[in-house]
């Protein structure tokens, strides 16, 4: 395996083989995604133009096109690059990958030509699928679903761009700029970059209105939940359909729920004011709890008070008991008290 390091080709010893250090051998493999950085080169190789580098990365231009220091016997001409979407392995590189993956089966950035087919002009419909990736059902059907679910039944004006599996947006691509380009300053616009067969790579760009009203966590949770729901089914078209449906439901409820506004309370920056704000909230909560407890105690006492129709002066009900007659008396058993007082003279 040959690695480019500081402009010199260094042959690493093969595993279990003999040592080739210091011996320049014939190149057996070329990695077009990892060309020799010209500014690191000690050989003073001619510099690559950025466009040429991009084309080489996209495998549009052979790496040694335009001649070079090495003849084809040493540096063989690379085959013609494959045009169109690359069906790659599902293993994904990390986020922010520039596309210069060592593994040729990894995600490959979209070339400017293909990307231009997406972004060259503002789409007429709500579904952008220039590669005709949606196979199971016609694009019109899917577009009508997207129109109905993600536009008619929610407050957002959604445009869905479908990319192939393994394709990656160019590193210099600014999706927010594309949203502004298409929707202007419209607050309810939503741009969804959906990767066919890979819903987990979905990217959603919300407008300023949604970003100002809802927290990023809320918006991210909506997309994540929709992606999870989409991953529950197997077919790629079914995944897209389920993603659209679930996301429309969540966006619908998001619009109906009270927004978690990012209100500047004016106390965020000042710890003292924040402390007083927290204290005020605590006091208010404790006060409310105290009032509720007091109300409950009053209700309990009132419920325990002898039932009366007129408040304190109302009739009092006494507990009923079973009489036990004695002395053969049906109503009174002689329960009585006697006092004497000075006799009154007869009138």
């Amino acid at each position: 395996m040959l690695l480019a390091s500081a402009g010199r080709l260094v042959a690493l010893p093969e595993e279990g083989g003999h040592d080739l250090t210091g011996e320049l051998e014939e190149a057996v493999e070329f990695l077009p995604d990892n060309p020799i950085p010209w500014h690191d080169s000690l050989l003073g190789l001619p510099g690559w133009m950025r466009q040429e580098l991009t084309e080489i990365r996209d495998r549009i231009r052979p790496a040694n096109q335009g001649g070079g220091l090495f003849p084809p016997q040493i540096w063989p001409l690379q085959p013609e690059p494959v045009q169109g979407p690359l069906i790659l392995d599902s293993s994904l590189p990390g986020e922010g990958d520039s596309g210069l993956a060592l593994d040729p089966r990894a995600v490959v950035p979209l070339g400017p030509g293909l990307m231009g087919r997406y972004t060259m002009q503002q789409p007429v419909g709500v579904l952008v699928d220039p590669q005709q990736l949606i196979q199971d059902r016609s694009g019109g059907q899917m577009e009508s679903l997207v129109q109905r679910w993600l536009n008619d039944q929610c407050v957002f004006r959604t445009t869905l761009l479908v990319f192939g599996p393994g394709q990656q947006l160019p590193s210099d691509f600014d999706p927010q700029a594309l949203r502004r380009q298409w929707a202007g300053e419209t607050d309810d616009s939503l741009l969804v970059f959906y990767f066919y067969e890979q819903p987990e790579r979905t990217l959603a760009i919300f407008g300023h209105g949604a970003c100002a009203t809802y927290t990023a966590a809320v918006l991210r949770s909506i997309v994540d939940a929709s992606v999870v729901e989409a991953a529950r089914v197997s077919g790629p078209t079914e995944q897209l359909e389920r993603f659209c449906y679930k996301m429309s439901v969540r966006l619908h409820w998001l619009a109906r729920s009270p927004p978690a506004k990012l209100v500047d309370t004016g106390v965020s920056g000042n710890p003292s004011r924040r402390w007083w704000g927290n204290m005020a909230v605590s006091v208010a909560i404790l006060g409310a709890l105290g009032l509720a407890a007091g109300f409950g105690v009053v209700r309990l006492i009132r419920s325990r008070r002898p039932r009366s129709e007129g408040g304190h002066d109302g009739p009092f009900l006494l507990p009923e008991t079973e009489p036990c007659p004695r002395f053969g008396a049906p109503h009174s058993g002689g329960f009585s008290a006697v006092i004497t007082f000075p006799r009154q003279s007869a009138p």
Partner: peptide, 27 residues
């Protein structure tokens, strides 16, 4: 009548009796 109370006052005899029925006796 077991729910009754009776106050008997004899002014000449100088006696007052307060009697109650079985219901008052239970209370």
């Amino acid at each position: 009548n077991e729910r009754g109370l009776l106050l008997v006052v004899d002014p000449r005899g100088g006696t007052a009796v307060l009697a109650g029925g079985y219901f008052l006796e239970s209370l």
